[in-house]
Design a protein around this nucleic acid. Sequence first.
RNA 1: GGGCGUGUAGCUUAGUUUGGCUGGAGCACCCGGCUGAUAACCGGGAGGUCACAGGUUCAAAUCCUGUCAUGCCCA
Length: 1060
Amino acid sequence: MGVPNSPGDLDPVALENALMETWNEEGTFEATIESRRDHASPFTFLEGPPTANGRPGIHHVISRLFKDMVCRWKTMEGHVVERKGGWDTHGLPVEIEVQKQLDLMSNEEIEAYGMEAFNERCKESVWAYEEAWREMTERMGFWIDMDDPYVTLHDEYIESTWWSLKRMFDKGLLFRGHKVLPYCPQTGTSYSSHEVALGYKEVAEPAVYIKFKLIDDDASVLAWTTTPWTLPGNVGLAVGPDVTYCRIRIAEPPSDSWEGRGGAEVREELILAKDLLTDVLRHQIEVIDEFPGSQLIGKAYRPLFPDAVERGDSENAWTIVAADFVTTTDGTGVVHTAVMYGEEDYNLGMKVGFPAQHTVGIDGAFVAGTHHLLDGRYVKDCDSDIIDHLADEGLLYREHTYTHDYPHCWRTGHPLLYYAMDSWFVRMTAVRDEIMQYNSEVEWAPEWTGTKRMGEWLSNIKDWAISRERYWGTPIPVWICPDCGHEHCIGSIEEMSSMKTDGSPVPPELHRPYVDDVRLHCPSSGCSGEMVREPYVMDCWFDSGCAFFAQWHYPFENEDRFDGSFPVDYICEAVDQTRGWFYSLLALSTALFDSTCYRRCLSLGHILDKEGKKMSKSKGNAVDPWDHFNKEGADSIRWYMTTQSGPWSPTNFDPNGVRESYAKMFLTLWNVYRFHADYAVLDSFDADDESGYVAISERSPLDRWVLSKASEIADAYHENFESWNFHKAGRGLEGFVVNDLSNWYVRRSRRRLWDEADSTDKRACQHTLHEVLLIVCRLMAPVAPFIPDVIHRGLVGSSVHLADWPVGSSLVERNLPPRDHALEQEMSLVRSLAEAGRRIRVKADRRQRLPCRSGWIVGAPNLSEFHDILADELNVETLTTEDDLDSFQKVVLAPNRKALGAKCRADLPAVLAQLDLADPEPLLLEIEAGIAALAGYEITLDDIEVRRVEKDGFAAHTLSHDAGDVSLVLDMVLDSDLLSKGLARDLIRRVQAKRKQLDLEVEATIQLSVWIDGMELAGDDWEHVKSETRAGRASLNEGKSPTDTETFEIDRTNVTFYLS
RNA sequence: GGGCGUGUAGCUUAGUUUGGCUGGAGCACCCGGCUGAUAACCGGGAGGUCACAGGUUCAAAUCCUGUCAUGCCCA
């Protein structure tokens, strides 16, 4: 190999689809892994499992891109990078989706439908879009093993999670408690905050001020609540220790304006916060005493509903305790605490030891024994009866209507109850220091995700509620003995089988309801109870957090694979996973293995629509990746996503940007390749043919320059990869390909390859192109795996993905050409001078094709190597170097009218006239010497402005350079010789355009007839036209022009031509 | 309500860590040039209250405070 085929036009979609076929046929992905085995240096990646119950969108493409990119890069660096796919298959969203499909509104309805059938539907639904995911994954070029993925619903996976739970159970990290959640008794479901947000409604509800009668004191403490149904559950009152409270006495009966139930006797004493006296009280009062809340602490009061809650062994029940959350913004400054019906209440209750007992059942009705008026009734129906009852008992001070936003069930419309659900917890608070330590060992990108977002969260870590009262999920493997209360956690299928009672069925899979039917022999000595499984499933974050070991079915299998891949080298997901998967992985590795879980974590910013809004189906602003897969191709999307912003920045997706990536990067690269390949075929160029090789030191400065630049760009690219700045890497490389390689090197080298004879210079150019293209393709391959692979295959016959990283690594050799800094600097100046020339011509209105007689470079280092290139770029006949600008410039003295006007007044016109006539250079000398005078007035430097301008016939431009200012001067004089040359160039260009328009072969010869009216075309120039346009036969001003001719006017000359 | 990001030209963005030259590119637009060189390229032009308001400083897009918008997470 070594002779590329002529590649033709770029059709990215066809190219990529064909290449996918090739990859499948030749097993390229597998080969990239196997070919690195001899290094035995793994780089491990863990796929965060997606859920396939929704169609993949553009935001999934971006996270899969950054996963793929790093894995491909590390492979090229010589590592073995195995990539196992995974699927997340459990969880509430799956259940909700199925409930919608089946129109099952509540747990009761699910159970009536049948748990077995329901779970079967859930299992089906998680594969609904698997095909779409596979297609997207393959089409975008994400290389991952999708044929042998880990799946969280597989028994093997579940068994591993059971093992982990048992391990924590044995460590004492697992415990049973309550978690207060917004709960809908009608549907039997608790809600996530996201669902809660769907159902806020403004409601007017009864709010009451309740008198809690102190024991050993005549006064009552006044407390406020908007949820009377929680009052039977009251077990304590909370005050702010530093808040000022008052003891007051009712002085007079209220006025007639009293509304509603309740009241107080004259001389009755009440206690409440000083700041709220006037808000709360409707009586004339006298303040008896004033004291801080700390003085109230420990005082006992009489329960409102004495039978509702049992004291148990609680010493603090029905006493006043301190809490830091008490404020005086509303209420009375005393907070009624019902442990089971508020998160703060629950936390406080646990802290001070209030009894944690439900007065309300899971059905939303008061439990039997609460109060004879309430037992068995739905709590929200009881508000008024509770208020009546308390009024009758003399415990109600006042009621009023309170309007506020309150969460409601988005399905049934009922108000949600904050309700303490039974729950199993992992005691993360016990390993807080450890998890913070392991977090700090992770290399986070960006750093603040780890130090701030994750760090802040970990420093306030809470115990992790891992159980859910749901149906579809990993069953919690804890069984409890109804006889003795013994708790047992099962850690394997084998353990379950060995403890199973004879009457229990063998579960066909580790899901509900099958596992629920399994009874276990109680292992406590002397107990013959049959243990029953706790009816919960696991939080699906626990599932996916087990991935790093459960993907291998560790510890039951694959111990070596786990050991060899832990901690994981690299994970990558979007930033919303900080408290999700990033956390659950770290939590589990800390609790199970006393280790960090991953060494490097890239946290991606979200992809938003063009206006910075979240993409969602309902808004209709979601982008379908296939729109671009089928248009610009996957490489263009990948390159666009990589280069347009930092990976962690939120990104506004602009479809036009994808087109731009295609047009700039890929089309340019392709055409460079095509240019090389076309001539390589023509010349039978073989890069491997040593006899034709030209050593780099023997090549032209232009070759050595582009090779040096390629080296520079490769090193920068690599450094940016190392520091996660993939966007900067890509932009740098794109700049090189478009500006340096295509727009300078190829443009300047074009003529070298046109030469039909074999020459060292031509071969030098071909080797250079070959080498630079290889470097570029290898650098691009991790980002854009398709087009660079096709080019690479065209150049050397093998996949770019099997090639080594050109920058080298600890495992592979560095393979980059030598740098030549001096040459790079010189070329930079040459290019700047060429640009300066174009600027001069625009300003001087001199078209580019009309040559200049002379050009001079002033103040530059020696650029003689590049005079040919520069003369050609500038279109000058001769180019020479000068030491200073004096011979091209003259002094112009412009009047300072403001200064001169003040001095000369009415004589100003005369002074200006003399200034105009004066020879500026001697006059300036006189002014500087202080002896100048015009029309009788002394002239100083303040009166004039000194400018230096080009002498007539010259135009110049000065640019800054490291070594100082460098100027370019062009000779603007015209003569017939130059006009003839200019005309010839225009004629050539017109003919060439016509050739292209007629779609002639590059080598085809033509017959050319030209008629010029108004100018003489020099003989040499006519010869030049004929050779450039491959005119085999040609005529100039012979006969009359036929009618179907091209005509144009240039420099006031009419030109007509005809070709056939 | 709290935590963490983001906000620069019509659009996508660089610059913010470490304050310092006239805030730099690309797309789109206008004028011109160049081209057997492509959906390209080159020169020039127009387009900016650097989200807003204060503050620190000789000097603020950059540092500080507050506000607004937007996103994620938590309540």
